[in-house]
Structure formats: structure tokens, C-alpha cells
């Protein structure tokens, strides 16, 4: 699907598609983060007020605190993504002769584990700080409403059986104990684009999926 990137450069898009795909890979259960448009979602987040920490407290002095004190970096998410991707790709070229997106999956996983445990030293920032943002934004991009550019085809919701925008019939359904409520998920985007029906109060009209009987 075509997408005009507002913040990310093309090498950054390639990096994020590759890295997010390792966090949520495509497999027999369905699409992974790449196909679900997670890089596109992250681009949108970075171009939003959050990318500049618009509602966050941004007054100094700045110093690193304990883990219990939370985020204390003077850098914005935009600056963290930009610096980290450049520095990780540089590290990969030095150590492995190729940028991150062109490495074998097993090596990508190993590098991600190093970032997660802050064992990948980068010149300007903590790799664990970057990894925590990347994992958080990847999960958001896989499961947030598709109106934000990720969760394409409602891949995240289909994976777990989440119906999206609620229907108004749950009080009856809640009395059907131990019966799975399986419907075609409905997103805000579906309703905006008139691909899904709503009732008079704006709740989704769910279409039940035909469930194959167990073998």
C-alpha cells in the first residue's frame, strides 16, 4: 500500500520494517508487523505531537534517574529514532558489513536482544531506551485502530479475535458462557469509510464469522 512518509527517511523505513517484523513476525497465524504497516504507523506517531513530546514535561535540568522514575531523556521520540537507527545501522555495517535490514533474521534477533538488555553500545543514546520505544510503538501499531496507519487489514485484531468498535448486543452475549463471539472486526476507519454498518447510536453492527466445527 502506498504511503507518503512524513517524518521517516527511506533507510529508516527499511530499518523499522525489518526490526518490527522480528518483533511480530509473519507466520502460519497471519501477517507480521511489516505487512500490518507498523512502519507507517510509527511515522504517523513521530509526525504527531507525541513525536515532539507535545504533552510531556520538557523542562530541565535533565539527568538519568532510576528505572522507577521513568523516561528522563532530553531527546524527543523523533530524535531518539533518528539517532538510534543511524547508529545501529553504522554498528551493523562495521561489525557485519551490512545495514540492519539486510542481515539474517537470526542475527537481527540477536541484535534486538542486545538492545533490549542495553548491551549494544551506541555513541549517543541507550539502546535499551530505543528498544523500549520500538517495542511499545510496534505493539501499538499492530493493535491500534487502522485509522493510524498500522493494523492493516485489522491483522492484529484478527490474530487475537478482538472485534474492534463494540456492538450494542454484549449484555445478551455475556450470558452465553463459554461461547466464543467471533465476528468480522469493525474499525473506526471502516465506519468513516462506510465499509461497516452502525446502529442508531453509532455502535457497530457485527457480522458473525462462520466457525468451522472442530475436527
Amino acid at each position: 500500500m502506498a504511503h507518503a512518509y512524513r517524518f521517516l527517511t527511506q533507510p529508516e523505513v527499511k530499518f523499522l520494517e525489518a526490526a518490527a517484523e522480528r518483533l511480530i513476525p509473519a507466520d502460519h497465524l497471519g501477517p507480521g508487523a511489516r505487512e500490518a504497516g507498523v512502519a507507517c504507523f510509527i511515522d504517523g506517531q513521530l509526525a504527531s505531537p507525541w513525536g515532539l513530546h507535545g504533552r510531556q514535561y520538557r523542562t530541565g535540568p535533565w539527568q538519568e534517574g532510576t528505572p522507577e522514575q521513568g523516561f528522563q531523556s532530553p531527546l524527543t521520540p523523533q530524535e531518539i529514532y533518528r539517532a538510534a537507527i543511524r547508529e545501529i545501522d553504522q554498528h551493523c555495517r562495521m561489525e557485519h558489513a551490512k545495514a540492519f535490514p539486510f542481515l539474517e533474521a537470526a542475527l537481527q534477533d540477536e541484535l534486538l536482544r542486545q538492545m533490549e538488555s542495553d548491551a549494544l553500545p551506541l555513541p549517543s543514546i541507550s539502546s535499551a531506551l530505543f528498544f523500549s520505544l520500538l517495542l511499545r510503538n510496534t505493539m501499538e501499531g499492530f493493535f491500534a485502530d487502522p485509522l493510524y496507519g498500522g493494523n492493516r487489514g485489522k491483522a492484529g485484531w484478527r490474530l487475537i479475535g478482538f472485534p474492534g468498535v463494540a456492538a450494542a448486543n454484549y449484555t445478551e452475549e455475556l450470558d452465553h458462557h463459554n461461547q466464543s463471539y467471533q465476528v468480522e472486526p469493525v474499525s473506526i476507519l471502516d465506519i468513516e469509510q462506510q465499509r461497516a454498518q452502525v446502529d442508531a447510536q453509532g455502535y457497530a453492527k457485527h457480522i458473525k464469522l462462520r466457525v468451522e466445527p472442530k475436527a
Partner: peptide, 21 residues
């Protein structure tokens, strides 16, 4: 509806919560 059912907005970026800036 349907905008009230937006998890990303209300869980992460809500403008009904204190503006920490």
C-alpha cells in the same frame, strides 16, 4: 461513536488528562 472506541487516543494521548507540558 465510533471515536470513543479509540484505545490509542484514550490510553496514550488523551486530551482529557493533565497536560504534563
Amino acid at each position: 461513536m465510533p471515536y470513543a472506541h479509540d484505545e490509542l487516543k484514550y490510553d496514550r494521548h488523551s486530551d482529557i488528562l493533565q497536560n504534563l507540558s
